[in-house]
Amino acid sequence: MATLTYLQAISDGLREEMRADDRVLVLGEDVGAFGGAFKVTDGLQAEFGEDRVQDTPIAEAAIIGTSVGAALAGLRPVCEMQFSDFVACGFDQLVNVAGKMHYRTGLAVPMVVRLPTGGGFAGGPFHSQNPEAWFMHAPGLKIVAPSTPEDAKGLLIAAIRDPNPVCFLEHKHLYRRAKGEVPDGGYETPFTARTVREGDALSIVAYGAMVSAALDAADRLWDEDRVLVEVLDLRSLVPLDEDAILATVTRTNRVLIVDEANATCAAGAQVAALIADRAFGDLDAPVRRLAAPDVPIPFSPSLEAAVLPDPDRIVEVARELLAY
């Protein structure tokens, strides 16, 4: 066990898996000599060489499309979008080529697309997005979104070993803020939800950076209101751990779902629909959602703070729900 940041845990997972499996290779913009815009791939090219850690031209369709080809050739590519926003430039290769391949042809596409996501640091409209809902709507893609260093490493290794294309959402806000104990060696974290904190009054369902916001809110609700809030970390959006979601509703009968992404058709909307469909009778209050409004993520700190959910707003909506 070592104490690592979320970013170090991702690097560690990548390095472990590259050492264990010579089919694993890394492709992306500035990932080689420079070590990546966020330094996730720092040192990998020196250890594994230029074929296994490839600096690519600025060409997202080529990065994703050649990864599909490499996967079909029997390799296990892990490609990086420098910021998840740029995956829009490779959308077609991911959605139409990678996602539909197995259903149409029986050919598997074992590849990982690393997507540094999220806002909170004045990145503006093109460096702050949470694009997961685009891909939840596209059959054939798995989507994971770790919230802790331990899960970041384990989910990345599981994603690399998975025989399907996996979108790996790594939240930039967590890169250096989230620290924790991370097991040594290679291990897989399952694509299931995890109850981070047990409670009986209310469940907050979240993923990625919103898990720590939910935990902060839960602490305050205990300190100030003596209310025990349960926090469920989805960890995987596709597949979605429906059993875990329904189980938390059964335990607390009140649910708040928090997305950092834009609200319409977000992951949280899918969770809300599931609960309405399968757990209506267990509810003591309407399902509430908190998400970014449907605007591009603005640059100025005052504007960005006005759209991203934070612990204050979570506490506010939680109190409304508890009072219902």
């Binding site: 369709a61 080809g69 050739a73 590519p77 139409n96």
Partner: peptide, 19 residues
């Protein structure tokens, strides 16, 4: 969506070359 598979062919060729 043409010519998406040209890009995939480049990736296949890359795999062959690396190996």
């Amino acid at each position: 969506m043409l010519p998406d598979m040209m890009v995939v062919a480049v990736g296949l060729a890359m795999g062959f070359r690396i190996r």
